Deep mutational scan, measured.
Amino acid sequence: TYTWNTKEEAKQAFKELLKEKRVPSNASWEQAMKMIINDPRYSALAKLSEKKQAFNAYKVQTE
């Protein structure tokens, strides 16, 4: 089980997950979700809006 003390740690864990699963920077949210949804870190960020925000930040960083 994973635990995160801060929102920032949770966001980092979520981005690490995207990186580890090699989600391409041109992937849509739907494509990315299919690649990461079974990992416990997918739940790091509770709100869908937070997940999408972190995903978009990840995409910008990896382009």
Rank of each mutant, 00 (worst) to 15 (best):
T1E: 15
T1G: 15
T1L: 09
T1W: 08
Y2K: 15
Y2G: 15
T3H: 13
T3Y: 13
T3C: 15
W4F: 06
N5C: 15
N5S: 10
N5A: 15
N5P: 10
N5H: 12
T6C: 07
T6P: 03
K7I: 11
K7L: 12
K7E: 13
K7S: 06
E9M: 04
E9V: 04
A10P: 03
A10V: 03
A10Y: 03
Q12H: 10
Q12N: 10
A13I: 06
A13H: 07
F14A: 00
K15E: 15
K15S: 14
E16I: 05
E16D: 14
L17C: 08
L17Q: 00
L18T: 01
L18K: 00
L18D: 00
K19I: 15
K19D: 10
K19Q: 15
E20W: 04
E20I: 05
E20H: 06
E20M: 06
E20D: 14
K21E: 04
K21L: 06
R22L: 14
R22I: 06
R22D: 11
R22W: 05
V23H: 02
V23S: 01
V23G: 01
P24F: 03
S25F: 14
S25W: 13
S25N: 10
N26K: 06
N26M: 06
A27Y: 11
W29I: 02
W29G: 00
W29H: 01
W29S: 00
E30L: 09
E30F: 13
Q31T: 12
Q31V: 11
Q31F: 12
A32L: 02
M33Q: 13
M33V: 11
M33H: 08
K34G: 10
K34L: 12
M35E: 05
M35T: 05
M35C: 07
I36E: 00
I36M: 05
I36L: 05
I36Y: 01
I37C: 13
I37Q: 12
I37T: 08
N38I: 07
D39E: 04
P40Q: 06
P40N: 07
R41I: 02
R41A: 03
Y42S: 02
Y42Q: 01
Y42V: 02
Y42R: 01
A44K: 03
A44G: 04
L45S: 01
L45F: 05
A46K: 12
A46S: 14
A46T: 14
K47C: 14
L48E: 12
S49F: 05
S49T: 08
S49N: 09
E50V: 03
E50A: 06
K51L: 06
K51T: 02
K52N: 03
Q53C: 11
Q53R: 12
Q53H: 10
A54I: 11
A54Y: 05
A54N: 03
A54L: 07
F55I: 02
F55N: 01
N56R: 12
A57K: 11
A57I: 07
Y58V: 02
K59Y: 04
K59Q: 09
Q61L: 13
T62K: 08
